[in-house]
Amino acid sequence: MTAPGKDHDAEKREDEALKARLEKLQSAVSGARGGIQAEEKREEAQMAAGQDNGRMMSLAFRMVSDLVGGILAGVGIGWVLDRALSTSPFLLILFSLLGTAAGFYNVVKAASPPSKTGKDALPPEP
């Protein structure tokens, strides 16, 4: 930089020009980086939203079939017991009511936040 033939002022000007160029490039780089980061963030948010939708949908599938499954199980048990004990139709009525309760109970269990999953699960009882 300190070439003997050059005069001091010209050198300074050149330095300043280089500095300005460096700043411009830096701001351009950070701008591009910010843009990429924003895009990545947006994509992440989109993916999270998609996963959330999937989770919600799977929860909905679970709840509907849990409700129907409870009712079906109750009706089935009542019907079989009625036929076996020839007490028709009382056990069918009783067990279909119990089955409906069980169905709603299933849905409530599915809707309440999991309390004993994974590592913080209760230790097996002795």
Partner: peptide, 22 residues
């Protein structure tokens, strides 16, 4: 207790019907 038992017995029903029906 009967509700819990029915809820337990309803598991294979809802488990299979969900996949099949969908």
């Amino acid at each position: 207790v009967p509700i819990e038992i029915i809820s337990f017995l309803s598991r294979p029903i809802s488990h299979s019907v969900r996949l099949f029906a969908n």
